[in-house]
Each structure stands twice: as C-alpha cells, then as structure tokens.
C-alpha cells in the first residue's frame, strides 16, 4: 500500500508537483497519466526516495520514505523511465549487488536471479555486458532489478512506453500478475489509452496538480468505441455523409464518429465508396479516451 499525502516538489521556484494526494491499495493498479512535463517522473522519484519532497509525505506500507527510508525501500520496487545502469557491468553481478541489500539466505539470491532472468528471457544473455543489451533487454533488466527484493509495491515510470506490441503485452501481463499477488502498482504514462486495459484507476496530473481520478466504470464508458476513418480524397461532403451515422469530428486527417446510432463500419464504408470516396482505413477505435484526456489536460 502506498499513501501519498500533500506531496509537493519544487525545483527552485518552479512547482513541479503540488499538493498531491493518492492512495494505492494492495492488489490495485493505479495509472498515472499526464502530458510530458506534467510531473509524473518527479512524483515517482520522490515516492522512490531519490529526491526529497519539498513538503508532504509518501509512505510505503506505512513507512515514511524519508524518515524510515530503509524499511520503506525494502518494500518498494522502482522501474526508471530510462534504464540507467553501470554500462560495463554484467547482469548477474549487478543483480547480486542490488540483491545484497535485502535479506537473502545463502544461495537463495542466486536462485532468485536465475528464476527472474529466465522468466524475463534474458538468462541466455547473462554473460553479455549491459551496454550490449538492446533497449527491450535493458527494460527487462530494469524490471528484474525492481523485483529482486520481492517488494509489495511497485513504481513503473512509463514502462510500457517504447515497447513493441509483444513487449507491451508481456509487461502488461507481468503487471496484472503482480496485482493478482496482491501488490500495489503505480504506473505512469503520457498515453492514457496505454493504461486503459490495465489500470483499475487512473489519476490524471496536469502541471503538477491532480485533476481527476478516473475509476474503472468511467474508463469503460469513456473507452467505448467510436469509428475512425481515413479517406485519401476527402472534401467537405464527407462530414455530411458521416453525420448521418452520429456526431462526427475531424482530428488531423482522421474522421471520428462518436458511439451511438447505427454504426456498422461496413455500411459506412459502402456509403462512402458509392460517393467515390477512397477509404483506406476504417475501424472501431477508442479515440474518445485519448480525446477526452487531451481535452482535459490541454
């Protein structure tokens, strides 16, 4: 369980985070969404004990991260936004170093390291220096480094970001498994939809301030589908046609029809093609979530 209470952090005069209050319960995944520079990493770094809060507190399983740092850190795993490790190190010695800060019996740590590395598919690369690891492998190593102490609370800073679809799925599964094990997870992202399928709640931060906490139900409603269309030869007439299927908007090159009414993509496609429009993309999308998000944090 993680409790953030009245957390503020300023850099000189600049307030990166102001008066943030959040609670992440055991077995809960809390998403943390905000645009770049909103204060997500700052919040997470203060939660991890890397930087000191200007005011307010963070407690990990009821241990204050500043005043009871050792106890609090024992129960916390942190995955940084960018993997940053001793480049010349090999994974096993480095994990042994990290693992040495926790209470492991003889041989237990070696076993744990092997298990985790196998689980994350990098055991075969155990003799390779970290600097020769690919981005994906580095990210996996970061996850292992966070899990080495077997903590009950996790901070993931943009961990899904920059992964290929396969990687996203894998990490998502890991996070969901952590939840199943009753761990509390705090996962930030600058893309709301990335959090949608994994988070129980999403806290939205803008300019260092919490502006809303979306619950699962709200997410489901917001996240319901609309239809997204791309036309290679659009003109003014398109909006008229599409409006007959529902409320239509144009974002960039894409048309979007909000949900409701008769929304069969095949029917819409047929209608457009008959009017000599060339449709190169049409599909159900969760655009509204992102739209909603962008609207909110603008």
């Amino acid at each position: 369980m993680i409790t953030i209470s009245h957390l503020s952090k300023s850099f000189n005069k600049f307030k990166a985070v102001s008066d943030l209050n959040l609670e992440i319960k055991n077995g809960e995944i809390m998403g943390f969404a905000g645009l770049n520079g909103a204060g997500k990493s700052t919040t997470i770094r203060a939660m991890a004990g890397i930087i000191f809060p200007t005011s307010g507190t963070v407690s990990i399983d009821n241990n204050d991260i500043v005043r009871e740092k050792v106890k609090a850190s024992k129960h916390l795993g942190w995955v940084p936004e960018l993997p940053n490790f001793e480049v010349n190190a090999k994974p096993i010695p480095l994990l042994k170093y990290y693992g040495g800060f926790y209470e492991y019996g003889a041989g237990e740590l070696d076993k744990k390291i092997k298990e985790l590395m196998e689980e994350f598919g990098i055991y075969n690369y155990r003799n390779r220096k970290l600097k020769y690891y690919s981005q994906g492998m580095k990210k996996r190593f970061s996850l292992i480094a966070a899990m080495i102490g077997d903590p009950d609370n996790y901070l993931f800073d943009e961990t899904l970001n920059g992964l290929d679809p396969q990687g996203v799925k894998e990490v998502r599964d890991i996070i969901i498994n952590l939840k199943k094990d009753g761990k509390s997870v705090f996962l930030s992202s600058h893309i709301l939809s990335e959090l949608q399928n994994v988070a129980d709640k999403i806290a939205i931060i803008k300019n260092g301030q919490l502006i809303k906490i979306l619950t699962r139900e709200e997410l489901v409603n917001l996240g319901s589908s609309g239809i997204k269309i791309h036309i290679t030869n659009p003109d003014k007439g398109v909006i008229d046609i599409l409006s007959s299927f529902g409320e239509t908007s144009l974002t960039g090159d894409y048309y979007f029809i909000k949900k409701g009414g008769n929304q069969d993509p095949a029917g819409i496609n047929k209608e457009l093609v008959m009017k000599n429009y060339m449709v190169d993309y049409i599909g159900r999308e969760n655009e509204t979530l992102e739209e909603y998000f962008l609207e909110m944090v603008k």
Partner: peptide
C-alpha cells in the same frame, strides 16, 4: 561518476539511506 550519471539512483532505491 555514479552520482553524476544517475546510476547511483538504482542503489539509492535500495534499503539504505543516502
């Protein structure tokens, strides 16, 4: 070196004080 590069952060998050 560890401090300036930020590598020390991966140790600071362990059960030890700064």
């Amino acid at each position: 070196k560890d401090r300036a590069s930020g590598i020390i952060e991966s140790v600071i998050v362990r059960p030890i004080t700064k």
